[in-house]
């Protein structure tokens, strides 16, 4: 089923990371990213590697899934690595002078570190957020984090309701697209052959009915919501109230220690200094 892909990001589970408060998780992710970009030498990078292994263990997610998550980035990672290897001017040349280009040891180390950083960045944020947090919990978290903005008339609740409904209807609309495409194929429409312009044109008879049905669904949904006494955000309560637990406190300390560790290693640890 194609509709599984959309929610395929979230891995069902009940690990330490799954149980964290989504509000804190958002804050953790941002702090973690800052930490990653502060890292400047090999020791800091070692700490980074250690942190990702810890996160992986805490999440209980299979390594296969994480590696699969990196696959779409393979090209970008390889590209940056190659660029760095050939462009970086270091002090230890590795090839004979007679060659028309030169590779330096520092260039290779640099490239490896960049690859490591990108991989850790992507994997770490995915583990912390997308793999262990349902989209709904994430939306709730964002809504509550931004709640103070409602005081200056930012429609925070409306925005999060829109997000919720959008998430809810993604699989429905994908299913619908499949159905319409099958119907159009049955009438002889061809989506897989011809020039790009032709293929784009073939999609028009799919998009038009899809839009019409989406509007009809929206109207139905609005009626249904009205029937269920929805009147906007004011006076609304929630069944699942977000609670911060000891887990969030532990994680907060861990993230703070991580950033502090990176900074200290940058300052005090000797060794190869990474160049951006």
């Amino acid at each position: 089923m194609r509709s599984d892909i959309v929610f395929g990001q979230y891995c069902e589970g009940s690990s330490f990371l799954h149980k964290l408060d989504p509000r804190w998780k958002i804050i953790f992710v941002f702090s973690y990213i800052v930490g990653l970009f502060l890292a400047k030498n090999i020791f800091a990078f070692a700490l980074m590697t250690l942190s990702i292994i810890l996160l992986w263990v805490l999440s209980g997610i299979r390594a296969k899934i994480l590696i699969k998550g990196l696959r779409p980035l393979l090209f970008i990672i390889a590209f940056t690595a190659i660029i760095n290897i050939f462009w970086f001017k270091g002090e230890t040349p590795l090839l004979p002078d007679s060659w028309f280009f030169q590779i330096y040891l520092e260039g290779i180390i640099n490239a490896l570190l960049i690859v490591l950083r990108v991989a850790v960045l992507v994997t770490g944020t995915s583990i912390l957020l997308t793999y262990t947090t349902t989209p709904i919990a994430l939306t709730d978290g964002i809504e509550q984090l931004l709640a103070p903005l409602a005081k200056i008339k930012v429609p925070v609740h409306e925005f999060s309701m829109m997000m919720t409904i959008a998430l809810r209807f993604i699989p429905t609309l994908i299913e619908e697209t499949d159905k319409i495409m099958s119907a159009q194929k049955a009438r002889g429409s061809d989506f897989s052959q011809g020039s790009l312009a032709r293929r784009a044109k073939a999609l028009v008879p799919v998009l038009v009915p899809l839009f019409i049905s989406a509007f009809r669904r929206a109207e139905d949904l609005a009626t249904a919501m009205e029937c269920r006494c929805y009147t906007g955000g004011a006076g609304r309560t929630r069944m699942n109230v977000l609670h911060s637990t000891w887990r969030d406190a532990v994680m907060l300390v861990a993230i703070a220690a991580f950033i502090a560790g990176i900074v200290l290693l940058n300052i005090f640890a000797p060794g190869y200094v990474f160049a951006m």
Binding site: I136, I165, L167, R217, D220, L221, A224, M225
Partner: peptide, 9 residues
């Protein structure tokens, strides 16, 4: 329509 009246995932 069962699809058009459920709000949450």
């Amino acid at each position: 329509n069962p699809d058009n009246q459920l709000v949450a995932t």
